[in-house]
Design a protein around this nucleic acid. Structure first.
Lengths: 380, 380
DNA sequence: TGACACGTTCGAAACGTTTAGATTAGCGTT
DNA sequence: AACGCTAATCTAAACGTTTCGAACGTGTCA
């Protein structure tokens, strides 16, 4: 490897040795570089500039005018001793940390990945740090994470909640820290939220499948205790109903959002004696499982079975089959969630809860094939 | 609120000294739902339990034995008033925040998503919070983010660095907060690191292509200022050399890690008069661009052109073509990085820098087809 | 009886900021 | 010469913890 073979590397070894040397020296002299490494404080700056700490603080915060002369002395001192303001002490005094907490069920779910990315950028621009937690779709974990965040005095919370919300309700009621719900509403928790019009999105997708001639449409959902899954299911039922199709309960399977759950659900659907001609997966990681099951069972999509699903990704239209999906406006979702929270943080605390409902978009590709009469003209 | 209604409280107001009296009186009269909502502090607990704050602290931290009687009174008080320890004040006094900073170039790059997820879980288990920053492959942004994290007194840093590392070098030299490099080494920054044996991984992949009969192998890389790209390129060159193949500079294209860069690079490669029969993409988001370019130009993979790339994902073997990839051991990478940092945080500060090099694994699927003699037997 | 040790508990000084209120200096008014 | 007024600066008290050293019984021993 070039790293330890090249000439530079010997240089590093040299430096490292010298570093070690320092260590032993400081152990001897005792006081130079201890764990308590005494970063320069405001007092040091004040002394170096021959002013009071109040003046330094005033300058740093712009809370009072300080004369050009002192300004110059202070700035010089800051530069000289490499002073960095201690944000922890500041937070303690100010009662604000300029940090927010963000919890999502799984960061590896591409939908959340994208949203997290957008939110992170938005808060970054606003000078906030983001503490990220993954709750792994587990309520206890979520409660613990939220407590952790609250202990650390985050100024606000964005939560893609799990289960029944747990301690969330109490937090919102106490109203000490603003909370924005992301992607998932929460019964009994009345606060700002950004969600998709899930019902409509699935209604459109399933209606599309029906228009293609599908009559038996398998439906794979996550646990129905969270609002998107609940609403999507309604969309499915309503689409069938609107088309005068019967609801066959055996076509509905639910799992716990993971690929393996999608796999199992699909296996079950495909082994029905009268198997569905199309499958809609209401959650993205599960659709991977669906595709694997289709492959393992020796069928192919869309020839033998059509597939559509929730959430869209860069690679959706690159590989074969190109997946027909419901695309969520991830950019808008993330930005709106951030805006809602930033607005609260800016002081607008007493406005009534705002609920933003965004629209999904059906991205029609070629993983669903027309059946019957329509099929003839296409497959010919 | 129970605070000022319960019988105990009146007692304490009575006991409280003059200075404190003002405070509690104000609180009692003035506060219904003010911004300064005065969460219960340790002092409140102490008063409610008729002990000193020192005793409460001792009990909470287990730093001294406190009698069963007081223990019981204190715990009761904590429960009664719903006391939560203020981690900010604690951090200020203790000089530790139990928070670490994590910066990655792009969280939407699935490799980083996975690693972030693993790291987050590891620190969660250890009772640490994680502040996540995305540097967007930009050095200034990274410097800014790191400053932000340092201001907030993170106890440690895990960095998938960008550019030449920027202020990273100074931070490592100051040795106040431990730093672990992730995925990318950094010249002149001598600290703990976890990386892949990139050179070997690409060597193996390209050698595989050569064994399939490919002679002109396009290579798409990211900017070569970061170690993985540098090492991967060496792997490519060495594989060619080992097989006695010529290095054709026109087959090497570089971009800035994004899908669009992969797209453009591939377009260029495919429009060469003697175009390559295979393309290796050294970065994952770029391979999406590669596939799109192949599609747009009307070719197909693997029939017209073989493709292999770095980084593996759940969907790699589900769609067609099933991508041949170099899989990184993301779980191990994340865990090792976390362990290195946790070890430093546990006090092992003076051990020399440790560099962990993990091995990639070639996942052979069907996006690369055999050429020439080999091809005959297969395609027949 | 006094001295001593021991196990609990407490008082008060940090930690590094912000900020209200006090102080000072400069300057025009009467 | 005494009086405000303003602008610039400072003093000192928070913020909510941790922790060191002192104080306080209480029992034991000489």
């Amino acid at each position: 490897m070039h790293f330890n073979s090249c000439e530079k590397c010997r240089l590093y070894v040299g430096l490292a040795k010298q570093g070690r040397l320092n260590v032993s020296k400081m152990a001897a002299s005792g006081r130079k570089k201890q764990r308590k490494s005494t970063a320069p404080t405001m007092l040091h700056v004040a002394e170096a500039a021959r002013v009071s700490v109040a003046t330094v603080s005033a300058l740093l915060n712009g809370t009072a005018t300080v004369s050009p002369e002192l300004t110059q002395r202070i700035e010089q001192a800051i530069r000289d001793i490499g002073y960095k303001r201690n944000a922890i002490a500041r937070s303690l005094k100010m009662g604000t940390t300029r940090t927010i907490g963000l919890t999502v069920p799984h960061i590896t779910n591409p939908f959340f990945t994208d949203v997290v990315s957008v939110i992170q950028q938005a808060f970054d621009r606003a000078g906030y740090a983001v503490m990220l937690c993954c709750t792994d779709e587990d309520l206890n974990t979520q409660d613990e994470q939220i407590r952790l965040l609250l202990d650390r005095m985050v100024d606000g919370l964005i939560v893609a909640r799990v289960g029944d919300g747990g301690i969330l309700k109490g937090i919102v009621e106490d109203a000490n820290v603003p909370v924005v719900l992301l992607d998932r509403l929460c019964e009994g928790v009345d606060t700002d939220a950004v969600v998709l019009d899930n019902q409509r999105a699935v209604f459109d997708a399933v209606t599309y499948l029906i228009h293609l001639g599908h009559r038996r449409i398998g439906y794979i959902t996550g646990t129905s205790d969270i609002s998107p899954m609940h609403d999507r299911m309604i969309g499915y039922r309503e689409a069938l109903q609107a088309a005068g199709l019967p609801m066959a309960e055996e076509l509905i399977r639910s799992g716990n959002f993971h690929e393996i759950d999608g796999y199992n659900a699909t296996m079950q659907l495909l082994s029905l004696h009268d198997r569905p001609s199309a499958i809609f997966s209401a959650n993205n990681p599960m659709v991977i499982g669906t595709m694997k099951a289709i492959r393992d069972i020796g069928l192919s999509c869309p020839e033998d079975i059509s597939v559509a699903c929730f959430d869209d990704f860069p690679w959706s239209d690159v590989f074969v089959p190109q997946l027909t999906t419901v695309a969520q406006p991830v950019q808008a979702i993330g930005e709106q969630a951030a805006n809602l929270l930033l607005d609260r943080l800016a002081g607008n605390r007493d406005a009534p809860p705002r609920k933003l409902v965004l629209k999904g978009r059906l991205m029609i590709r070629n993983s669903c094939r027309p059946l019957g009469a329509v099929a003839q003209s296409v497959s010919a």
